[in-house]
Simulated scan of single mutants.
Amino acid sequence: MTDEPLERWAARRQGRLRKPGERTAITLGTGPQRAAHVDPDTPRLILEWDGFAWQPLMPVENYAAARRALNPQPDSTPANQAEATGPVMGRNPLAPGTGRHRKPSS
């Protein structure tokens, strides 16, 4: 078996590591950590990875606020881009079809 060059190994390892600046939210409720949707009104703590450990960043009041902190929306849409008002559909979704998921017509 041949040894892998150190540079290639380091590049593979770096690709697997968490990137500094990555954020996550944990529940500040009592008991073990549970899925976010179970207690949507429980306060959360936003943590940020600094490359070595998770550092507390800020507390937020609930799940919705944590989502906004983790996934901020852009400040504004470009002037030449229209805002989307709803889903755009190419054809009538209730039209009869031939797919396997359709109920056979009798």
Score class of each variant (00 low, 15 high):
P74V: 05
P78L: 08
T85S: 11
A84G: 14
T27L: 11
M89E: 11
H37C: 02
R102Q: 13
K103M: 13
A69Y: 00
R18C: 13
L17K: 10
G90R: 10
A35C: 10
P43H: 01
A84L: 11
R100V: 06
A66P: 00
L94N: 12
H101V: 07
T98Q: 10
S76Y: 09
L45V: 02
E22Q: 10
M58G: 14
F52I: 15
T24F: 05
R100Y: 07
M89F: 09
R67A: 04
P59I: 09
L17A: 14
A35R: 12
E4R: 06
D75C: 12
P104N: 08
R16E: 14
D41M: 06
G31A: 06
Y63R: 09
G31P: 00
D75F: 15
P87R: 10
R67S: 02
G15A: 14
E61H: 09
N71H: 08
G86E: 02
S106K: 11
E4M: 13
T42M: 07
Q81R: 12
S106H: 13
E61S: 12
E7G: 11
A35S: 08
A66T: 00
G86A: 05
A53T: 10
T2G: 14
R18S: 14
A69C: 01
I26M: 05
E83V: 12
G15M: 07
T77E: 10
L28F: 02
P72A: 03
R13E: 10
A82P: 06
T77D: 09
M1C: 14
R100W: 06
N92K: 05
P96H: 08
D3G: 12
G90Y: 06
T85R: 13
A53E: 13
H101Q: 13
N71Q: 06
P93D: 00
V88W: 05
G90F: 04
D39Q: 12
P32G: 14
L6Y: 11
T30V: 15
A82M: 08
L94F: 13
W49Q: 02
T27I: 09
Y63G: 02
A11D: 04
I46C: 03
R18E: 11
G86P: 00
K19E: 09
E22D: 08
Q81H: 09
A10S: 15
